[in-house]
Amino acid sequence: MRALRAAGVILLCSVSLFALSRSVEAYLKIGTKVSNGGVVSIRWGGFPVRYFITNRDVAGVTAPQLQQAVDRAFHTWQAVPNVGLSSQFVGFTGLSPSSAVGANVIGFEDHPELDRVLGATSFTLDTVSGEILESDIFLNTTFPWSVATSGEAGRQDVESIVLHELGHLHGLGHSALGETEILPGGGRRVLGESSIMFPIAFTAGSVNRALHEDDVAGLSDIYGNPSFLAATGSISGRVTKNGSGVLGAHVVAFNPTTSVMIGGFSLTDDGSFVVGALDPGTYVLRAEPLDDGDPGAFLSTSVDVDFNFKPAFLSRLVAVARGGTASGVEIKVLPK
């Protein structure tokens, strides 16, 4: 299983990412089919995550510098409260991420065939429980890299990209909280994003090393303790067009008090969605087509995503109570 971060354009993932629909979901978690036929979210069974760094330098970045950037990125995720993540650097290894078996390896790797993929995360999973047994991350040497504090023109920031990939390593899928434009020569450019888990990276030379609330919500959902779930609520409902459900709509819940945005998706034929991990408060809801990236970056390629509708707001505000679910919401959209 592999999850990718793209440079300029999204490539189809090599395997499907199953979007899980659970009552507390606020983003996409990576799911996998298990032996009983069900789909479960993947997660580590215990911590720390012990990892190796490939002992390979590239222009502008030595292996120790990569290790330091990875350590900073791990700590950024570990700073999320009530989650309990931890990691441990074991040492440098001669193994590349793709060749390692039985060890978690992060390092540079040559992938000239993936000319728009900056990095990718792969997994070895327990097919019964969905537990992550091993995860490896490669950064593509096709691109120039940097660990400069403020970024370096024309080079991708290692820590920014590793931060995204570590989100995958912990079980998060892609978020659609971002806006893009199509470039004249093909591909897409990000205009803005509200999640480190948006599948397309900022332009080379930029740094993007902070988590957003959507990222925190996703990680808290996967690993959060019961007090987190008790302290937050969710909104559930449907996205409909001419009375029928819309599959694959991106739903955003925005709290005007905190200016926090959390995303979700309609994941069934009847347009049902759940946006979870919401702090108590009153929310604005908005639905839009999943057209700021390749839908395969978000949902299984077998999902017949509906793009033919205009973005729309829900005509009422929705209050979320602590530990509660505001249900029965219907966002009505119109065809383009």
Partner: peptide, 26 residues
């Protein structure tokens, strides 16, 4: 009852101000 903008972090290569997805005035 307050105004707020649903802002996204701008890609620095496309501008310096946040990208406003929409605005609320309450």
């Amino acid at each position: 009852a307050g105004s707020a903008a649903a802002n996204e972090t701008r890609n620095p290569s496309t501008g310096s101000t946040p990208l406003t997805l929409f605005q609320t005035d309450s």
